[in-house]
């Protein structure tokens, strides 16, 4: 990793600053409240968000890659920022599989970082992601796709509350004959979990989970849960499900397999990095 250089905070929207950085051919990490965009030579090489499973979650929770293989690659190549290359060289993953999973995670996180376009908090020139170069995407493509995804969700069902609120099933609604992805998403709706938590449980990208959830909402099967009416009348919501495991950075290997809430920890990490 390259030592970060301090830069002034800015209230400029992240998309505007990204455009400028792309034009300059900049390399480094741009933080917003929703996540971090990594640039190399003016192209987006990775994006992370607290609301989306990262590439390690997607690969290991799905069973595509044994956690040992993942952590071995982190141990051997994390410091050199070549984890992606290491996964391929060690025979754990085909190049195409790595690229598909990486792009899936990149555009998924980018949607949450850029679709609502909060202010950029900080740019650290030279900061590189530990995954290393897999596939670089033009900034324009990432910005356009994030906007397109927001419009796609709006066309399916124009209720943004679905995206962030705990979700509940509609009592007595008949969920007959749902496609596989939609029915397994509905099965995780329990009145407590949010879309991001459901995505983590399913080892599925959050945007793709949102598409299913908005379709379920459009079909009258799922609603966002309204805030609890009075304290004491209902038990506190349970923490995120215990399936959430390994924090996937080049951090020390976790000793406990069931961290309480990966998303919360990652949000804290982003906040610290943005300081």
């Amino acid at each position: 990793m390259i030592t970060p250089t301090r830069t002034a905070r800015t209230d400029e929207p992240a998309s505007a600053l990204l455009g400028t950085l792309a034009a300059q051919g900049a390399s480094g990490a741009l933080s917003t409240e929703a996540g971090i965009v990594y640039l190399a030579a003016g192209h987006v090489v990775h994006v992370e968000s607290a609301l989306t499973p990262d590439i390690g979650d997607l690969l290991t929770h799905s069973g595509a890659l044994a956690p040992d293989g993942w952590w071995e690659a982190i141990d051997q190549a994390g410091r050199r920022c070549r984890v992606g290359r290491q996964l391929v060289d060690s025979g754990h993953l085909a190049v195409g599989a790595l690229e598909l999973c990486h792009l899936g995670a990149l555009f998924d996180a980018a949607y949450f970082v850029l679709a609502h376009d909060g202010p950029a908090l900080r740019f650290r020139p030279g900061a590189a992601h530990w995954l290393g170069a897999v596939r670089a995407v033009p900034v324009d493509t990432v910005l356009r796709e994030s906007r397109r995804r927001r419009e796609l969700l709006h066309r399916i069902w124009p209720e943004p509350a679905i995206d962030l609120a705990p979700l509940a099933r509609v009592p007595d609604a008949d969920p007959a004959d749902l496609p596989h992805r939609r029915s397994r998403t509905l099965a995780q709706v329990d009145g407590v979990r949010t879309a991001a938590q459901i995505a983590t449980v399913l080892a599925c990208r959050t945007f793709h989970t949102l598409v299913e959830l908005r379709r379920l909402a459009a079909a009258g099967l799922v609603v966002p849960k309204v805030p609890a009416p009075a304290p004491g009348s209902a038990p506190a919501p349970a923490p995120a499900p215990a399936h959430v495991s390994a924090e996937p950075g080049p951090a020390p290997r976790p000793t406990a397999p069931d961290e309480p809430d990966t998303a919360l920890l990652r949000r804290l990490l982003h906040a610290l990095e943005a300081l």
Binding site: V95, L100, F107, R135, R148, L152, F207, H208, V211
Partner: peptide, 30 residues
């Protein structure tokens, strides 16, 4: 071992190929 680009270039070597793409069928992104 082919990545996305190599796979698409291989597909383009088939007789009569005009274009090839890898597309995500939920988001609609190429």
């Amino acid at each position: 071992m082919p990545g996305i680009d190599e796979s698409l270039l291989q597909a383009m070597r088939l007789p009569g190929a005009r274009g090839a793409a890898v597309v995500d069928w939920i988001s609609g992104l190429a």
